[in-house]
Simulated scan of single mutants.
Amino acid sequence: MIVHHLGNENSLLQVFVDELRDKKVQKDSMRFRKNMERIGEILAYEFSKTTNYKPVNIETPLASTKAFKFTEQPVICSILRAGIALHNGILSYLDQADNAFISAYRKMHKNGIDFSIEVEYLSTPEIKDRILIIADPMLASGNSIWHVFETLTKNSTPKEIHIFAVVAAPEGIELLKNKLPENTHLWIAKIDQGLDKKSYIIPGLGDAGDLAYGEKL
């Protein structure tokens, strides 16, 4: 897997990540969602530098000139519900992309520590031979993204796979390196220290879905 760690340099990206982490700022759910969207826009912009373009002719008010457009549009698949704000940011830049949505959540076992990943809902266009972007703010153990990938590719094989995440743990990155095709790209804003005994990212930022949309039952 090819890892694009955008947090290696100081930039506005890190300002937005730091605000996502800050407990004082987290009290403003609208600002939390906006920062998620901003990060999605930055990840989409960086991704756009690596995709293919084709020349086209356009007419300005004064003359004909050469321009460039994507050779093909990707499919953006976000993991519900935490991925919605990130998805909106990606889509605001890749605004001609097709969209897919999938649910994946941790089903905790009785010991309160172990869990399994449940995938219950999927809505997607055809992804065969297309560029697939999987968007999820938190890459912790990596199991959610792995199960989502298995579900999406059960009957179709994408041409390219790109993972967009905000915060990741080294353990999750390692699992995806072992599970996903070698040419998979991970676009990540920040790689954190690791996981605690409940597989939460440290220092992380908490539950992205709850912070964006309110606590669930």
Results as ranks from 00 to 15, higher is better:
Pro61Phe: 10
Phe101Ala: 09
Lys179Glu: 11
Gln193Ser: 08
Arg81Ala: 10
Leu13Trp: 13
Lys177Asp: 07
Gln96Glu: 11
Ala208Thr: 04
Phe149Ser: 01
Asp129Ile: 13
Lys27Thr: 13
Glu46His: 08
Ser78Arg: 05
Asp28Met: 03
Gly194Lys: 11
Ala63Thr: 12
Val119Pro: 01
Asp207Asn: 09
Leu139Glu: 06
Leu122Ile: 09
Gln14Leu: 15
Ile76Asn: 05
Phe68Val: 05
Phe70Gln: 08
Leu195Phe: 05
Ile145Phe: 06
Ile145Lys: 04
Gly40Lys: 00
Glu19Val: 09
Ser78Gly: 14
Ile173Trp: 03
Ile113Ser: 05
Glu37Asp: 05
Asn35Tyr: 12
Gly83Met: 04
Ser123Gln: 08
Lys23Ala: 10
Ser199Pro: 01
Gly112Thr: 12
Asn111Met: 07
Phe16Cys: 10
Ile42Gly: 01
Glu59Ser: 11
Asp98Ile: 00
Tyr45Ser: 01
Leu80Tyr: 08
Lys110Arg: 15
Ile76Pro: 03
Asp98Lys: 08
Leu195Ile: 05
Gly112Cys: 07
Gly214Gln: 07
Met108Glu: 09
Leu195Thr: 00
Ser78Gln: 11
Glu19Lys: 07
Ile84Ser: 06
Phe164Met: 13
Leu12Thr: 11
Ile79Pro: 02
Leu122Arg: 02
Pro55Cys: 12
Ala100Met: 04
Asn143Trp: 15
Lys66Ser: 14
Ile145Met: 14
Glu126Ser: 12
Glu174Asp: 13
Glu215Ala: 15
Asp192Arg: 03
Leu91Thr: 07
Leu186Thr: 02
Asp114Ile: 06
Ile161Asn: 14
Ile2Tyr: 02
Lys197Met: 15
Ser141Pro: 09
Thr50Ala: 13
Asp136Val: 01
Phe70Cys: 14
Phe16Thr: 03
Asn88Pro: 01
Gln73Arg: 13
Ile131Val: 11
Lys159Ile: 06
Pro61Glu: 06
Phe70Tyr: 14
Asn10Ile: 03
Asp210Lys: 01
Asp136Asn: 13
Ile113Arg: 10
Ala85Phe: 07
Asn10Gln: 10
Ile134His: 01
Ser144Thr: 14
Ile161Thr: 11
Gly204Met: 06
Thr153Ile: 04
Ser199Tyr: 15
Trp187Ser: 00
Asp129Thr: 12
Asp136Lys: 06
Ser103Phe: 13
Val148Phe: 15
Gln96Val: 06
Ile76Val: 15
Leu180Gly: 14
Leu94Cys: 05
Ser92Thr: 06
Phe101Leu: 14
Lys49Phe: 15
His185Met: 07
Ser64Ala: 10
Val17His: 00
Ile134Lys: 10
Ile84Pro: 08
Leu180Ala: 11
Glu46Cys: 07
Lys23Pro: 12
Ala140Lys: 08
Ser199Asp: 10
His162Met: 06
